[in-house]
């Protein structure tokens, strides 16, 4: 069942001549882990903000076609209605925090306060969420004093606590160090297992290869390809055409195949590569 449906969707920020999103036709299913890759400036961030309704509600511009999210037309319904259905996480950990809480607990409860959740329920959910993100020992710390990775986890948790159907992550790890990245991706993996629909825009193909069900290539403001993760990420020519660097494992396997050292499919994940190497070793 489709939960996010782009129907011939186009978007044009007012003041700009060319469209940032052009004729997007795409449907994302409920419970799916959907990845988005593409070049810089190809409209991926706008794609993510459209699902949340920031486009057209917060930024001025022109819309063509329509976008249905969980049964709501984003153009016609309000941001607050959409915010209970969609959670959006963006790049910078610092500006994801609202500043409404003096400590992690209060930051997490902010969304619930706005929705008028009873206090008892709020306390219960905050406790559960802190446990899920593994920040028990930091719950009385000011979120601004945490590390980037921890801040991003707090940001994800404070959106998740509102129990959205869909979680949209717009390069959540772009400003994080490798450890922070791993922390955030482990959390995302945990969430994917719980059956939340996840839409992840990232440059980190290795992580996407492990988790995503389907991947779309968004380049030069258009959808170039939608397909199963393996089908898209192992298509080296397609990736090259869209200026995306394929995974190290894929490149390695491609090289070995070209040198006739290995006969088999292209690799995508670390596990694939391990298998390949043991095969190559056996001869």
């Amino acid at each position: 069942m489709a939960i996010v449906e782009f129907k011939n969707f186009s978007w044009n920020y007012s003041g700009y001549r060319s469209k940032v999103l052009r004729n997007i036709n795409l449907s994302i299913n409920k419970g799916e882990f959907f990845g988005i890759i593409g070049g810089v400036g190809s409209g991926r961030t706008t794609f993510c903000s459209a699902i949340m309704g920031l486009v057209p509600h917060l930024y001025p511009g022109n819309i063509d076609g329509e976008l249905i999210v969980d049964g709501l037309n984003t153009e016609k319904s309000s941001m607050s209605d959409l915010s209970t259905r969609v959670g959006l996480i963006m790049q910078s950990p610092d500006t994801q925090l609202t500043g409404a809480g003096m400590n992690v607990e209060e930051e997490l409860s902010f969304g619930l306060e706005n929705l008028g959740t009873p206090r008892k329920e709020m306390i219960k959910r905050v406790k559960k969420m802190i446990k899920l993100i593994g920040l028990e020992s930091f719950k009385y710390r000011n979120p601004f004093e945490l590390s980037g990775g921890q801040q991003q986890k707090v940001a994800i948790a404070s959106v998740l606590i509102m129990q959205p159907e869909i979680l949209v992550l717009d390069e959540p790890t772009a400003q994080l160090d490798p450890l922070g990245t791993t922390l955030v991706f482990n959390l995302i993996k945990k969430l994917a297992r719980k059956g939340i629909t996840i839409i992840l825009n990232t440059q980190k193909i290795d992580y996407l290869a492990e988790f995503a069900d389907r991947v779309a290539i968004l380049n030069d403001n258009e959808i170039r390809k939608v397909g199963k993760t393996r089908e898209v990420l192992t298509d080296i020519n397609l990736l090259k055409k869209n200026r995306i660097i394929s995974s190290d494992f894929t490149q390695l396997s491609n090289e070995l195949i070209n040198r006739k050292l290995y006969k088999g499919a292209l690799c995508m994940t670390l596990n694939d590569a391990k298998e390949m190497i043991s095969k190559v070793k056996r001869g």
Binding site: M52, M90, T98, M162
Partner: peptide, 12 residues
């Protein structure tokens, strides 16, 4: 930060 606030149902 305004987008982050909207994502937390600030205007509900």
């Amino acid at each position: 930060r305004a987008t982050a606030l909207e994502a937390r149902a600030f205007s509900a």
